[in-house]
Amino acid sequence: MKRKSLRFYFRIYRKILAQDIKSKMSYRADFIISTIGMIFTNVAGFISFWILFRRFPSINGWSYHEMLFLYGFSLVSLTPVQCLFDNNWSLRQYVYTGDFIKYCFRPINLFFYFQSEVFDIKGLGQFAFGIGTLVYSWNKIGLDFTPLILLKVIVFLITASLIMIALQNAAAATCFWIQNSFYVLDLVYRFRDYAKYPITIFNPVFKFIFTFVIPIAFIAYYPSLVILRPDDIPLLSWLSPLFGLVFFWLSYKFWMHGALKYNGTGS
């Protein structure tokens, strides 16, 4: 049998997505409440950010609006992981109860099949919020708006997303080996909060950790440098798209390795 093409997977995904959204909308109260909750989460996040910067107009040479740019950038780059890979949060439960086995019997990619099952619509609000913040800070900083810079932003947003997805995949996949993988996942989830800040504010140890061990510095900091500090771009910034792809590929391999050695519980 021939390998299934990317188009094949896109078509399947589109159908599952359409059905999923349709069924979610049919639970109206649920839909409205989660939308409101999402708005509040974002507003609260922004307020705490704003309070912090009223006290410190600049951090380590980063102005308020530059920090806002970083903030918006991280919100947008977190959208794909939120929307498309949210089922990773349930992976642990599926594995623990043995329900994961149901994903093993379809003639399509296991990783794809598992992730396609859930689309978290709440992520879209975060996306809108992030884009708003990004546009606003862009204006305030007075950045140019050229096709090249737009291209850069898009490439680096994708890069950042890939890294975030990779981190979450890897963290979620630990449940194939350990019982309490929730803490691993939660740890990564909490760490990503630090992605909003320029890495230079941390001490060298954390700087090293956030660059090479849990590479959250690639989520917003290194990519933003390309846009915000065009005169002095470290090599790591240019390498970050490559890092993104490599991290994503590694995390996928790790996830699949766990999934294929999975053998379920008795029944």
Partner: peptide, 24 residues
């Protein structure tokens, strides 16, 4: 598996069938 449905939990059966038609 008697106790573990493999269908999409939120979808009506006919929509599950359509997705399976595409997958297989």
């Amino acid at each position: 598996f008697g106790q573990r449905s493999q269908l999409w939990w939120a979808l009506p059966l006919i929509e599950s069938f359509k997705i399976l038609r595409d997958i297989y």
